[in-house]
Simulated assay, not measured.
Amino acid sequence: MSPPRLIATDLDGTLVHSDGSITPRTQAALLAAEAAGVEVVFVTGRPLRWAKDVFDHVGGHGHAIVSNGALIWDVATSSPYLVRAFESAIAVEVADRIRDAVPGTHYAVETLDGIALETGFLERYPVPEGSLRGSFEEIAGRPVLKILARHEELDPQSFWDAALAVAADLAEITWSSATTLLEISAHQVTKASTLAVFAAERGIGPDEVVAFGDMPNDLPMLEWAGTSYAMANAHPSVRAIATHVAGTNDDDGVAEVIEQLLDS
């Protein structure tokens, strides 16, 4: 297989080790790909505030697709390249529908300014001091990149199924967490659709893209890319649709594949 023109890789559970690190081997593989003229794009569910931690590894000129496709960030200029946010009224309608169907649902939202949370949303990680808390209408007063829906009693699959049943016509609903946390984007905004826009602007087709992922939020991207790798640690649904399986994230599976692609 000849080297692709673009490598698109998820972060957590894919490129990043379980301890949150990116190893020297992986860093070297990414740099070698860029030196060979291959564009490397991080495509992650992470919000901008978390994704920034690893931007150095796409190079100072690179781009990152964050919040499951709701934002392309220009790393070089530290500014938005493309924003695909919810319309405010649609965000409220989606939240209302899911909460009506699944009482006990609580929300947070990611915006360009950071996270905002309903008072009942129980976060698992520290949030920035001064983050807005209030009703959904209050926290969704700024353009919403991603809605986070949490339930403390259901399992992820049951919550996902229930949400899809009532709101799939208005939004893209997926998940990538070990906890019951849904990630909801505007209709037709996925990792795949945003990556397709980015690639098309550069004259790159799906058959020239290699993509890596591990969780259900990666499914559209892996189905779109001409060559796709599920990590060995991936969710069963991801392994079922990928064209190949890479080693685990903790075994530098992405780096191993990139090394092979560049040597072929």
Results as ranks from 00 to 15, higher is better:
Pro103Tyr: 04
Ala255Leu: 02
Leu117Pro: 09
Asp10Glu: 10
Leu195Thr: 12
Val66Arg: 00
Asp263Gly: 14
Thr119Glu: 14
Gly247Leu: 07
Thr243Met: 01
Ser264Cys: 04
Ala168Tyr: 07
Trp73Cys: 05
Glu129Thr: 15
Thr194Trp: 09
His106Asp: 13
Ala165Ser: 04
Phe159Ala: 09
Leu148Glu: 06
Gln260Asn: 12
Ser228His: 06
Ala140Thr: 11
Gly134Leu: 15
Thr77Ala: 04
Ala29Gln: 02
Glu223Ile: 08
Val43Asn: 01
Asp214Val: 06
Val210Tyr: 06
Ser79Ala: 08
Gln27Pro: 01
Ser176His: 13
Ala234Ile: 07
Ser237Ile: 12
Arg142Thr: 13
Val209Ser: 09
Ala116Ile: 14
Gly104Arg: 05
Thr227Glu: 13
Leu145Arg: 10
Leu195Asn: 05
Gln157Gly: 06
Arg150Leu: 14
Val58Pro: 01
Ser135Glu: 14
Ile98Lys: 08
Leu117Val: 15
Val58Cys: 03
Leu182Phe: 11
Leu6Arg: 11
Ala85Arg: 11
Asn68Glu: 03
Val210Glu: 02
Gly45Leu: 06
Glu201Val: 09
Ala95Glu: 01
Val92Ile: 10
Trp73Arg: 04
Pro156Gln: 05
Asp251Cys: 01
Ser264Lys: 12
Ile184Ser: 07
Ile22Gly: 04
Leu11Asn: 03
Val189Lys: 04
Pro220Leu: 09
Val58Ala: 01
Ser135Asp: 04
Val245Lys: 05
Arg97Gly: 10
Val92Gly: 05
Gly59Tyr: 10
Ile139Met: 01
Ala230Gly: 09
Leu117Asp: 14
Glu259Gly: 13
Ala91Ile: 04
Pro143Gly: 10
Ala168Asp: 12
Thr26Gln: 02
Phe121Ile: 12
Pro206Arg: 13
Pro220Ser: 05
Ala85Asn: 13
Glu87Ala: 11
